[in-house]
Write a protein that binds this DNA or RNA. Structure first.
Lengths: 226, 226
DNA sequence: GCGACTTTGTGCATCGCTTCACAAGTGCGT
DNA sequence: ACGCACTTGTGAAGCGATGCACAAAGTCGC
C-alpha cells in the first residue's frame, strides 16, 4: 500500500522519463523468450547504470527478488500500470502535412495503449480526405471529440506559426496533455503538460558535439596557459 | 579569449540543450523586426526563467549590455557559432518508410545549417526511386558518402529491429553523430553521440501525468494516515 | 538444514543544475 | 557632471539526481 502511494506521488521526473525505455527493453526481452532478468542485464539493455535502474524501480515498489532478479512479464506490467498504460488513451493528431500523415500511419501508437481517434486539419480543402483510415475532420470538431471520445492527448503536427493557435484550441476544448512537433515554444496554462519533439533541436545538439570534437584537435596548441 | 575557451569546453549539457530554443525564439523576434531584447523578455519567449537564461548565455561569453539587454542579431550569431551552425553539416537519412519520407521532405533542415546529402534504404526494391529530389541509395554507399561528402550525421528512420544494424554500419563508416527515431536503445562506442527521438516514449510520459491527475481526485479518501 | 553465493533495495556522499540576490556596469534625464 | 533607473553577469545557497557500498533477503548445492 505504501508502494501504491509512491506510485502516485513523488516519482522523480527523471525516473518517469526512463520508465518507457525500461518497458521497451522488457518487451524486447519477452519477445526473445527471456522470462527473468537481473538489474545488471536490464540496465545494459536500457543503456543505464544498474544502480540507477534499481533506484528508479524502487519508486514503483518492490517487485524484484533478491538473489534472483526480476520476472520480465511482472515488471513490464508494473511499469505499464505506473505509467497509466492499462487503459487506452484517446489521441488526436492535428495537422495533415507530411509529418502528420506519417504519424497517422505510424503503427507504434496502437501497440502500446494509444488510440488515434481522429485526425484534424485547419485547411478546408483537406478536410474530408482520408488519411490512414481516418477521414480528416475540421478543427471545430475538437469539443465534440473531448466530450464524446474522451480525447485526452493532442498531437500538434502543424507548421510553427499555427502551433500556438492549435494549442489554444486544444486547451479551450479541455485537453491537458500536448505533444508538440512544431519547432516553437507553446504558451499554455500551468495545469497543461507539453512535451516537445523537434528534430532541428536534436540535430543542433549533435552539431555542437561534432564541432567540439573537431575543435579538440588544436586545443593543445592554444591553451598552453591552462 | 577566455570566452572562447568557455565556448569549447565545459558548457553544461543542460545549457547546450536549451541553446536551440533560444535560437528559435531569437529568430522569431528578428522576423517581427525586434532588434533588442532583455533577458526577461527572451526568457519568456523561450519558456524558461530569466536567471537560467542569463547563466546559460554566460557560458558562451558576455554578449549583453547591462542596463540595455541583448542585440537580437548578435546573440543569434553567437549562439549559432557556439552550436557550430556557421558551417553546413552533411546529413543522411536511412530508412524510407513513412517517417523517412516525411523527414526527407521536411524543409526545416536546410533553413538551419543542415544539408541532406543522401537518403538510403536497405530494401533493393526501393533503391533508385526518387524521394524529395533524392534518388534512394543503397546502404553500401555509406563509406563513399563519408569520404566524398564528409557525411557527419546519420538519421535512423528504420523499424526498431533494423536500427542497431544501421547504427553499426554508420559507426563502421566513420559517422560519430546519430539521430535515432527508432523505438530502441542503440549500442555504440563511447565516442559516438546518439540522440533519441521517440513519440511513443513521449506519449507514455504524457499518459503518466494524465493518469496522476485523475488519481489525485480520490487521493484524499485513501491517504488519511499521511 | 546450513553455509556459500547472488542480487536487490537503500542510506549516504557527491555532483551538477537551478534559483536567489546583489554588485557592477550602462544609458538617460537633468 | 551627476545621480537614478535599469539590466547583466555571477558568487553562493539550495535542491534534486547520480553513484557507491553494503546490509538484507533470497536461492542453490550438499
Amino acid at each position: 500500500m505504501s508502494a501504491d502511494v509512491a506510485a502516485r506521488r513523488g516519482i522523480p521526473d527523471a525516473s518517469v522519463a526512463r520508465l518507457p525505455v525500461y518497458l521497451q527493453a522488457l518487451t524486447s526481452l519477452a519477445e526473445r523468450g527471456i522470462t527473468n532478468v537481473s538489474s545488471e542485464e536490464l540496465a545494459a539493455a536500457a543503456g543505464v547504470s544498474s544502480a540507477k535502474l534499481r533506484k528508479d524501480l524502487s519508486h514503483l515498489g518492490s517487485y524484484g527478488v533478491r538473489g534472483v532478479g526480476y520476472e520480465v512479464d511482472r515488471l513490464a506490467f508494473e511499469i505499464s500500470t505506473a505509467l497509466g498504460l492499462t487503459q487506452d488513451w484517446p489521441v488526436a493528431i492535428i495537422g495533415m502535412g507530411n509529418l502528420g500523415r506519417a504519424l497517422a500511419a505510424y503503427s507504434g501508437f496502437a501497440t502500446r495503449g494509444f488510440n488515434v481517434v481522429a485526425v484534424l486539419d485547419h485547411d478546408e480543402s483537406i478536410v474530408g480526405t482520408v488519411v490512414a483510415d481516418h477521414a480528416v475532420r475540421p478543427m471545430s470538431d475538437l469539443d465534440t471529440l473531448v466530450r464524446e471520445d474522451k480525447l485526452a492527448i493532442g498531437v500538434i503536427a502543424t507548421p510553427a506559426d499555427s502551433a500556438q493557435d492549435v494549442a489554444d484550441r486544444l486547451v479551450a476544448a479541455g485537453v491537458r496533455s500536448i505533444l508538440n512537433f512544431a519547432p516553437c515554444v507553446l504558451d499554455v496554462p500551468d495545469d497543461v503538460v507539453v512535451r516537445k519533439v523537434d528534430m532541428s533541436t536534436e540535430l543542433q545538439i549533435l552539431a555542437f558535439h561534432e564541432q567540439r570534437r573537431s575543435g579538440e584537435l588544436d586545443l593543445t596548441d592554444e591553451e598552453v596557459a591552462l
